[in-house]
Design a binder for these strands. Sequence first.
DNA 1: ATGGTGGTCAAACCA
Length: 259
Amino acid sequence: MRVATWNINSVGARLPRMLEWLEGAAPDVLCLQELKCTADAFPYEAVEALGYQVAAHGDGRWNGVAILSKVGLEDVVRGLEGGPEYEGVQETRAISATCGSVRVWSVYVPNGRELVHAHYAYKLEWLTALKAAVAFDAAGERPFAVLGDFNVAPTDKDVWDITLFEGATHVSEAERTALVELGKAGLEEVMPRALKYDVPFTFWDYRNLGFQKNKGMRIDLVMGNPAFNAAVKDSYVDREARRGKGTSDHAPVVVDLDL
DNA sequence: ATGGTGGTCAAACCA
């Protein structure tokens, strides 16, 4: 089974590139983030024509997550139960489902913006709520993983130049601690291979030729429980999907499983 | 050089 995650940065704007990638990489399950559309506006027909079932959770201009599956899509749960609100709203940043023998979450962790911003506190609260919400499945026997854009670089190596991140979000102690705490629920990172260069970055800013200069960050992660991780045969970041016109600023992370 | 790209939705905000 091939499972993948991709911050698509507008499923509408990205549809041709996404369909092309679905046909080529042919994942059984794809977790999407940043749909930037309502659930009603998701391009269901085009994706279903490729053999996928779709569960989407989105409410407008920002955020939005989905799970695409060729191997069944059951027990869909939209949202993060017990999660914090931002400006009075529970944002559409999480969706979970059972796809064949695995249960997956697709998550879009809040960005945080600045260390002193309310969005940063919200980000930390969101990660704490995520840990509580996934604890039961993480501790279970069924293969289980949380995939998505975590907006946290786990180590200093996971950004192109750590000296430029002094005082920035994505690399702070508290964010990394929150990731470690999530792991304590029974999840461990699946480390992808890089197809080029040494670190498998997953995000490159559109500005300043970030991709061309490989000024990237590794912030899209797969956290699996022991049953999931024991089945992993291979994992890689498909940086080719970031190349050329009309791409997302993120690349997909692919995991191949013996399931 | 204090911007720079690209998304949404048509001005300003988000990443």
